[in-house]
Each structure stands twice: as C-alpha cells, then as structure tokens.
Design a protein around this nucleic acid. Structure first.
Lengths: 331, 331
DNA sequence: CTGTTAGCGCATTCAA
DNA sequence: TTGAATGCGCTAACAG
C-alpha cells in the first residue's frame, strides 16, 4: 500500500506538505492539486496506526455491554455510534456475555487498542478499572451509576412506582413483578419502586409475586409460568425489561388467558413490538435516545479535556405510555 | 505510561533484550528476572499500536454482521470469538444495520484498523472489497457465499426441503412459508427449497402462502397476521429464522388458535426458546458451532499464509429435529 | 545471549 | 508556505 512518502514523491513535494494537506492545513493550490491527484492515483489511505502512534489519538471509543442479546443496550450502542460518528469518532463494540472475568479481559482489550474513551455497562469492571488507576481514559457508565465516574441512568425507580400505582388506581391488588437478576442494579431499583408503591398503598407484598430471572426471553417465560401456577393468580404483571416481557407474553398466550381480559400488563422499555401486538402494551419508556446521546456528548466533552463538574450523574426521566393492556377491575 | 525503554533502563539491560523477553525469546535467567520485576513495578504494557506499526500484524480480526438484533449472527460471532481467542486473536465486531452504505463504511473502518482478517455477512460489500482489490486481507463469507471468497454456509436449501416434505408426509397441503427479504441469499434459497418440495409432490404453490418480511420479530408478526387473514388458512407454517418465528408465534397466540391443534409449525434455527415453549417446536437446526468454528479455523489458516485450495466453499449440513409442533392431518 | 541501530508511517518542529 | 529532520514505541537484523 502506498504511504505518505510515495504520495510526496509523486506530487513532487515534501512529506510534510502532504501531511499538512491531509490534515486540512493551507497549501499552495498548485501543490494541493498535485497531491490530490497523487493520492487518487495511488489510492493512498492514511495509516491510522502510524498516525495513532504519533498523535496518541485513536478517534475511537470502546463500548462494553453485558451481552449482545439485549435489545436495549444494542439499540443504545447504535444510537451512540451515530452521535460519535458526527464528531469523527468510531466505536469498537464488545460484550462480555454477563461474565465478570470476561468483562475485565474485554476492558483490557479495549485499553490495549488505545481507545480515547470508554462507555461501560458494568457489573464490576469499574472498580477494576479504578484499581488500575483508570489509565487516564475518560469513561462513562450507562444504566448503572458508579462512584467517581460519570454516568447516565434512567430514573426507573420512579418509573416503576408509576407503573405499580397505575395498576393500583385501576383497582389491582394482586400485582406481580418479573425482575432481572438479584444483583443487577436496575433489577434492584425497579423492585424497590414496586415495593415502595405497594407499601405506600398498604398492599401486602407477596413473595411469590416477585420473580427473578435473567433478562432474557427464556427468563420471562419461566417467570410467567411460575406466576401462572400460583393458586391466587396475580391480576396484574409488571415486566421489567423487553426480553422478559416477550417471554412472559409467550407464556401467557399459551394458557387460555388473555392479556387485558384476564391479566393486565405493563412493561419497561418501549420497543416496536409493544405497539404491534394485541392488545398494545402500556409501558414505562426509557429514553434510549436521550441516554445514548447524553452519554456520548458528555464523553466527547471529557475526551476533549473538559472535566467540568466531574463526575456527573445524569438521570434521565422515564415516561409512562398508556395503551391497551390495563383493565380496570372491581375492588 | 511506561515504555520498553523505561523497562530496559530499570532492568539494566538493552531494549532489544526486553523485547526478546516479551516475545518469548531466550534470555539469561538473571536478566529475565530483572525484566519481569521492572515490568511489574512499572506496570508496563506493550503498546500494541507501536508493535502493529512495526510488525504489520494486529492479531485482530474484524467481524461484520448485518445487525445486532439477530440472535443467529451474534451467537456465531460469540462462538467465533472463542475460537479466535484460542489462537491469540481478538475480534472487533461491527454491524451495518442492514444498510448497504453503512456496510461499506464499516468495512473501511475495519480495514483502517488494519485487522489481519475479515469475517463478513454481506449484502454486497464483497464486491466492494473486490473492487478495492481486497486490500490483500484474508476474508471469509458466512451464511452467504461469494465468488472468489472462502465461505461457510448452511445447506438450508436441503433443510427447507426436508421441513416441507415432513409437512407433506403428515398430510399437509396448505403450507405457508415466512421468508426474509427477497434479496437476501438465505431467503431465496429457503424459498427455493420450499418450492422444490412442493413441486416434487405436485402441490400447487399459492402466492399468498409466501410471505416476505425483514428477519425481525415484527416481520414475523406481520407475516403471520397476513397468513391468518386468508380465507383458506394454511394448516402448516414454515418460519425461516428465529426472529420471524417468535413474531409468528405471538401472532398465532393472539388468535384463538393453537399451534399443533390448529396449525403446525417448523422453524429454522434451534434456539433455547424453541424447546421451552408449548408445544416445543420442530426445527431445521443450523449448526452455529460448526459454522463459526469452521470459518474461524479456515480464516486463521489463511491469515497464517496458507492459501491451499483457495477459495473454499464449505457447506454445513442442517439437521431436522422433530418435536411437538407438527400434527398429522387427514387428507 | 546481548546491545546497537535502523526503520515502520506519520505529525510536527524549526529554518529557510 | 515549504522541506529537512526528529521521534512516537517497538521489532528485527546485525555485530559483538
């Protein structure tokens, strides 16, 4: 492959002139034309590796998410990528398959690639990074806040309360929740929202009504199967993630029961399917756009050296969207 | 951050000795100990960028898939990653959101990262790469074969035929197929398998029984809704991808009809959900392991300079797994 | 086995 | 504005 030297020779100028041309400096128009021509003829591409070695800037950010199975994170990753791209940054996307060991490995991989910034949805790698003195790489936590690190999270505690209170207003008392794994932050906070709303309304909390599964379709299916086995079936279900909801819907539909008529449902995360199915699902919508773009912008700021008000913990409001999956019942 | 020079100084040896030590050369044990100590004390990490500039080897392969939404490809990507890792390679995963323009961009990004090899699930970037003279980067096509490029694909033509013939043996004549987009290779080939089986058995092919949608949950849902509207409803459905199947199941379940009793179903791709739901689904299983590992191994071979029998087009057999979603009907 | 040295391709000083 | 020269951190001769 042609290098800058070849271009310089062909254009009859010095290497430094070509370099300046490439990087937008001012060059005599005659030289500019010659360089442009040479670049085209040689199909010259800047060698980013060499440039990176020299400048120590990769124009790349690493994005680390728990798993590629979760639509919420992959969607946010895609949104962030758009935003980064506008500012000239590319992203390297990694997942760690919900495995803490792998998480650290991937983090080291990203660091070894000398990324300029890091976006992380972490179980515990933030502490790991911290212990490694954070390598001076700006980073931002998504979905789960951490001490001493910029973060962008949803107010899903409030969102969950809102969902449960909607059920209660509609006359429901037997309200179940399908949560993610016990140890995950969002799982805990959503459960807390549920508990708070129940307590505020003096409704007894039933252990069997709280199910914990992985944030997967299978998890939602299993959890709902459990709930349907209970003698006193819940009349309302709060499913706290897209995949859990899909699985739960499949389990419901297999029984001779119907959403709305027999059971009311509210889901967290407003994906296309939620509007498409019958009845359309009421949701606590997390603003994936806002989360992604807020995080990207803040990280870009940090990467440019601006550490004003560090660390920031941005909280994005959720919004309740009422559709056709909640039935008023008699009390 | 410390560099190799710092380590050499601290260990009291030459840079080249440190380099040799790092790269597994033989070094006087006393020096080895000193170097090791210095590396630890300085928390020295090799600068991969510099190494890459020098050696022109990134020990990284780029993996480009259509979308992060598709479980089939993300699963294969994960499997390949395991295999690559065993050989010291890391992967950079990119998706192009089913957008041809983005596909080329991402490809250029991967190339600009100077990856050593490329795994591609492509609409048309292979031609693009070809037109750019393939930059000399070894690459392998997954899922969709291409001229002049190594590839690993499933024999889903045969798999589809097998599925349809199973339906026919069970007495079905009104068999529908839910395909992916018209232009996608796998979509075409699976449709061809369907058509071949129908023709072989002298069954008339009904246009309305062939639905084409994106390979998404929404697509499957829509397609199935269409099929259920037909006056003469099909008695059997062949859904040709995991997401299409999920969406179709949701649509079925919303109606007052039941898989097995009212409608028989066979799906392509054997994911966990297929066994979990009731009734469990019969599937044409693509061996994701075999595809991923075969592709990874072949690419590793190419990256090591071995171009024996180039190009190879490996075809992986599918296997039919009969479960409880097919009912024998009277003819 | 060890040390000296020359680049890998580029950006950037500093003179001109 | 331009060009010659330096060095980013590392590997790989080569000579000792």
């Amino acid at each position: 492959m042609a290098n800058i030297k070849d271009v310089a020779k062909r254009a009859g100028v010095a290497i430094s002139t070509v370099s300046k041309f490439i990087n937008g400096g001012s060059v005599r128009s005659k030289n500019a034309a010659a360089i442009k021509k040479a670049i085209e003829e040689l199909d010259y591409k800047v060698n980013d590796v060499a440039r990176m070695l020299k400048t120590n800037i990769a124009m790349t950010v690493g994005v680390l998410i728990p798993s590629l199975d979760g639509l919420f994170f992959t969607t946010i990753a895609a949104l962030m990528e758009d935003e980064f791209q506008k500012h000239g940054y590319s992203i390297i996307l990694c997942d760690y398959r919900n495995d803490a060991g792998l998480e650290k490995e991937k983090l080291d991989f990203l660091i070894s690639k000398r990324v300029d910034g890091l976006v992380i949805v972490s179980h515990d790698s933030l502490q790991y990074l911290d212990s490694r003195n954070r390598q001076g790489i700006p980073m931002i936590a998504i979905d789960r806040p951490f001490d001493g690190v910029d973060s962008v999270t949803s107010d899903s505690f409030k969102g969950s309360m809102e969902a449960i209170e909607t059920f209660i207003e509609m006359g429901h008392n037997d309200i179940a929740i399908i949560c993610g794994p016990h140890e995950v932050y969002t799982s805990k906070i959503r459960l807390n929202g549920y508990i708070a709303a129940m307590k505020n309304n003096n409704i007894k909390i039933v252990d069997e009504y709280m199910q914990f599964e992985d944030y997967t379709i299978e998890g939602g299916y299993k959890a709902m199967c459990e709930l349907l086995k209970i003698k006193k079936r819940p009349t309302a279900i709060f499913t706290t993630n897209y995949e859990l909801t899909l699985g739960a819907m499949m389990a419901i539909n297999e029984e001779n029961i119907k959403v709305l008529n027999d059971i009311s449902v509210i889901d967290i995360d407003d994906m296309i399917m939620m509007k498409l199915i019958t009845p359309s699902l009421s949701v606590v919508a997390q603003s994936m756009d806002k989360i992604g773009i807020t995080a990207a912008k803040l990280l870009i700021k940090r990467m440019s050296g601006d550490f004003e008000k560090f660390p920031q913990n941005r909280i994005v409001e959720t919004s309740f969207i009422k559709r056709n999956s909640i039935k008023r019942i008699k009390t």
